[in-house]
Structures are given as C-alpha cells and as structure tokens.
Design a protein around this nucleic acid. Structure first.
Lengths: 214, 214
DNA sequence: GTCTATACATGGATAGAC
DNA sequence: GTCTATCCATGTATAGAC
C-alpha cells in the first residue's frame, strides 16, 4: 500500500457521516421516537437494514450524535479553565457563545434532545458524564462572578445550560439574520443570569471584545 | 333535583381526572411517544379501550393536559397586567414564581412537553395560541424593566419562558427542600435575565415582598 | 457493504357484548 | 361506561444472497 491515497474521504452516500447528518435533522425536526429508521436510511441514501452495518441500533445513532455535540464543548470549556481572562465573565461569555453556535451550526438543535427519556439508558452513560464535566466547567466560570453557596451555584449552572438550549430553540423559529445574533445575545444573557449585578451595555462591549480575544 | 348533592366529586377510579393524572406522570417520566395507552389506562385503573370513551385519541389526552397547565398561567398573567406594581419587576417576579410553582406542583413537569414535535399538530392549535398570549404577557412585563427593540424583547421573553421550564427540570433532580426554593430562585433569575442592571440582594428583598403583596 | 425479504413485537384504535 | 377480543399498521431488527 505504498502510494498516495489523496482521494477525499468521499463522504457522499451511505457512509456513517451521511447517516448521522440525516438522523440529526430528522430527530430534531420530528422527534426521536417519531423518526423511523426507514426515514433516516432513505435520507442517507441507503436501505433501512444497511443502517445496522454502521450502528448497533437506533439508540446507538442518537448516542453518537449527542456525544459529538457535547464533547467539543466540554473540551473547549476545559481549555478555557486554564486561561486567564482580562475582563470578568469573558470566559463564560465565550463558552456560551461557542456552545450556542455549535448547536446552531449543526443543521439541527441536538441540545433539545438532551432531556429525552431515552438518554437515561445505559448506552448514554458516556454522554451524561461528559455533560456533567461541562456543567462543572460552567459552575467554575460562574463562581468568580458571583460567590454563591453550593446549591445555588448548581442551580445557576443548570439554568445557564438550559439557557443555551432555549436560545437555540428560539433561533430556529426566526429569520436567518436574527438567528445570527442569537449566540452573542445568549452569551450576554448568560452573564446577566450569572451575576446579581447585571451587565450594562457599556460593560458588555468590553466583555465581548475580551471574549473574542480569547 | 332539589337536594344538596354534597358528595364529593368522587374522583376515585377511571374518571377523566384519573386518566389525566396518570398520563401526566407517565408522559413526563417516560416521554410521550414511549408511553403506551395501555400503561396510562392501567395506572388510571381502567382498561386500555376505555380510554377512548373519555378522549378521542392519545393526542387528545396530551392536548388537554397542556391546555390545563398553560391556561391558568395565562389568566393570571393577564390579571397581573391590569395591576399596578410598587416595585419595578414585582409583577414579572410574581408571574415566574406562579408559573414555576404550578408546573412543579403538578406531579410532573408538563412544561417539558411544550417542545414536543407532536405539539405542532392541529389538535394543539388552542394550546399554542394560549401560550402565545402568555409569551406576550411576559414581554409586556419585561419591557418596562428594560426598553428594548422588538426582536431583542422577543428573544428575552422566550428565554424567560425557557428559564421556567429549565428551572422545573432542575427542581425535579434535587432534594425536596432544595426544590421548594426553586420557584423563588427562578423568579430572581428571570428578573436578572430581563434587566441589564441585575438585581442585587438588597433590592431583591424589596422585590420579593412587593411581589408577594400582589 | 449493500441489497431483498421477512420475522416479530408493539401499540393505537375499533367492534360489539354487558 | 366498562369490558373482552381483535384488527391492522407500524417499525425495529435479523437472515442471508450478492
């Protein structure tokens, strides 16, 4: 096998990636339970039974999808934790923006699937664990903005996570150019949510600039 | 029919109310699609086919449930709109608290079902309309706190609505006494989310008192 | 790795007696 | 208004040829 296989990965028909893209779109549009494996296969350009050469079962597709969205965000979050910030809140702002944009950038709001009852299953343990790490990172970014007892910090962290998913849902329902402003707006909102002292417009400008410089 | 029918409504077995209670619990715990009509019937103490004497179909049960949760909140919201408030934000605080408590008080987080794909169907038009009224009320309560262009006001309104659902989800996952504090905490968070200038602890005390006096 | 064909379980809904 | 019985569509997953 000496030579240069320079041909592109050729993600055109029936590959894993096609299946995932199809599933992402349909799961979020029609719901997980309501989406049939036939529909996923059809959109991926293959037959239903062929799905099972790429994935063990339907849950396996969903789990792969979820892990794929949360893992990059958790990785980014943990990188942020080792970074100094010039303006307080800049890292939180950056993370929320990143998170929202990732969710919005995929052609589907996979964030909305986080709360599915199926996700309590065994196959999703890895996903849940990664999401916990992300939640912990959020708490660590909120904490310096607003000293808080354990329980309240936990609540605020979860609310910020929920905010991201909510924002993505809103973005889906509005025009393209309005949607483009949602990630930054969500990040603004997260900072307000985190701190008791809000974030007036003049401080926001500083914050955004600092975040983008990260 | 002269006399005093003082016997209680006798909601014991198989009534509509039983079915609704059973469905609420199962839909939110296991998901709508994953809950079978058989399971609902069993928990309500009747046979599966008997469900169809009370409801036209499965969607009909869900729609009834959703209308039942959003309607009281919308009514309360519209009553609030005609009320003056001593402290800015008191009405918003009161509404979020009411909304969260209602959702939390039912044995199930029906709020989490709002985003179900099935809810796009025809049968749910009434529910969606009521929810729009509620969203409009939220915007009217946010607007005086924070003058905002149309699009941003809309976003903030939706984020507050999402916040309520998120808070309820969190409350389900924690101890009873922690959960008891969630409605007020969610209301606090909503005020922070609404305004650019936050809400420090000392103002919060005023706000809570004013809201409770409504 | 993709296909055809099909097994097999599940679940919503209906018929009709009591 | 509740039951028993059942229909029938749907949908996941498997078997096995190419």
């Amino acid at each position: 096998m000496p030579s240069h296989d320079l041909s592109p990965p050729a993600v055109t028909r029936g590959g894993r990636a096609q299946v995932l893209a199809a599933a992402a779109e349909l799961f979020t549009r029609d719901g997980y339970a309501a989406t049939t494996t036939r529909a996923v296969a059809e959109r991926a350009g293959i037959r239903q039974s062929t799905l099972y050469h790429h994935f063990a079962n339907k849950d396996d597709i969903l789990a792969t999808l979820l892990e794929g969205t949360v893992a990059p965000t958790a990785a980014y979050a943990e990188r942020l934790l080792t970074t100094a910030e010039a303006v307080p809140g800049a890292r939180l702002w950056a993370l929320v923006r990143f998170n929202t944009e990732l969710l919005l950038g995929g052609l589907s709001n996979l964030g909305a699937l986080y709360q599915l009852p199926e996700v309590r299953g065994e196959r999703f343990a890895g996903f849940r664990q990664t999401r916990c790490r992300l939640a912990a990172a959020y708490r660590e970014l909120i904490s310096p903005l607003q000293p808080l007892p354990e329980a309240e910090l936990r609540l605020r962290g979860e609310l910020v996570l929920g905010l991201v998913e909510g924002a993505v849902a809103v973005a889906r329902g509005c025009s393209e150019q309005d949607a483009a402003e949602v990630p930054a707006a969500a990040a603004d909102a997260a900072v307000r949510l985190a701190s008791d002292y809000g974030c007036p417009a003049e401080h926001l400008a500083l914050l955004r600039a600092a975040a983008l410089a990260l």
